[in-house]
Design a binder for these strands. Structure first.
Lengths: 223, 223
DNA sequence: ACAATAGTGTCTTTAAGACATTATTCA
DNA sequence: TGAATAATGTCTTAAAGACACTATTGT
């Protein structure tokens, strides 16, 4: 059996956050070929002498290229083929990271996800898959909570869901559902309303990286 | 920049089906090292000169090692690390395939998923991920339809869901839900009941590989 | 006091679970 | 005709959407 040329193995990280204009993705400008000067997702080789797994490589990229730590990260999908990288047949394990905007480093470049086109490699498609994954998860889990700073108010979280889903959600239903799942509660009512006006809102935190799901279909008898 | 030793890149396919004792996974006995004679998932190298993508490699494996064609297949997850394969640092893109039992080749070896332990490499874990994926999809999609022969009756499909989920589902609710989604209908009432007794059941088919989802949560306003 | 935002109450609708009832088929 | 299975009907319950209404805060 001959093994042929082994593929290049890399990771790419779709880092999503909420900012001006809704969902945004973090990009970096490439400083060397291929695609020199083009925008791309932060990524890099899987270093077999240093990274225990591809996920470790993704964390390394997250720290070194985006200087972001402690973020929610999950494996997204693996992309492969002879043409996606001009250096040869490549396999990229893509990860999805969600982070509150405030925890990104100062000069970080983010663009609205709809404007993330013309990126290097097949990164347009990877971004699209990441966004779709988040949108799907938003309908049945607390995943969007990873996009807001902790602690947060229910209206904060509500706004995050609406930004992710791109549609209105009834505020009363939203509140009822979130409360019924029991996210942690705080006693400080601190936070004043949206633009500094109106009644203050109760603050909440999500227990340690926990993502809750809520599905309303048979099989599992609810949560 | 030094690239170090590039990882080995393989695919592994979790082929699930329904048979004696419920959900079963197809295994092969390894005929060469490493793990010679041990049971393993069908898999193989991604051939950079032959496979357009890792998914093509998975299809090739499906055809050559399991002689199964036209099955539902989707990417599951990628597993990586220095220890999972004694030949060195490896990356395996795992796929999940669902197939009716009758479409497997004659002597195919399948075992109940709970008994798929002690497999080569980290295949125990890959099987577990595949099963979990299917179980999660069963609660919000028609994925289990890929496990039954076409055409099928609603009771057939009902039994498949129960086998996958491992719990009872109310037959009336199940029927109502499936009907309301509109899976294709046939005029032949042919199929006699379960063990040849009782009223015949209406036959249905699922339109071309289509998987419907049904979620009952806010965001998307139903289907 | 008033505007703005947070939070509650209530009504309607949809669909799931439970389970009784009717329909069809084979031996 | 009777047993077995398929299919329908009905009632209850849970939760989402809509939206009116109350509560609290800053100016």
């Amino acid at each position: 059996m001959d093994h042929r040329q082994s593929p290049i193995v890399t990771v790419d990280v779709v880092i999503l956050t909420l900012g001006e204009g809704g969902l945004r993705v973090l990009l970096t400008e490439r400083d060397k070929p291929p695609f020199e000067n083009a925008l791309a997702l932060p990524g890099g080789y899987v270093r077999t002498d240093e990274d225990g797994t591809a996920e470790d490589a993704a964390h390394r990229v997250l720290l070194t290229k985006a200087r972001a730590r402690g973020v929610h990260i999950e494996q997204l999908m693996t992309f492969s083929g002879p043409d996606r990288d001009p250096r040869g047949y490549s396999v990229s394990v893509a990860y999805l990271a969600l982070i509150p905007h405030s925890r990104l480093p100062e000069g970080a470049l983010t663009v609205p996800v709809e404007e993330a086109v013309g990126l290097a490699f097949d990164h347009d498609r990877i971004v699209a898959e990441g966004v779709e994954r988040l949108r799907r998860k938003a309908v049945y889990s607390t995943a969007p909570a990873a996009l807001v700073e902790q602690p947060f108010t229910i209206p904060d979280l509500h706004a995050a869901y609406e930004a992710v889903l791109g549609s209105r959600i009834d505020a009363a239903s939203f509140r009822r559902k979130m409360i019924s799942l029991s996210a942690l509660e705080e006693s400080d009512e601190k936070r004043p309303g949206g633009r500094g006006k109106g009644r203050s809102a109760q603050l909440f935190t999500l227990p340690e990286e926990e993502v809750r799901t809520f599905d309303r279909t048979f099989g599992e008898p609810g949560t």
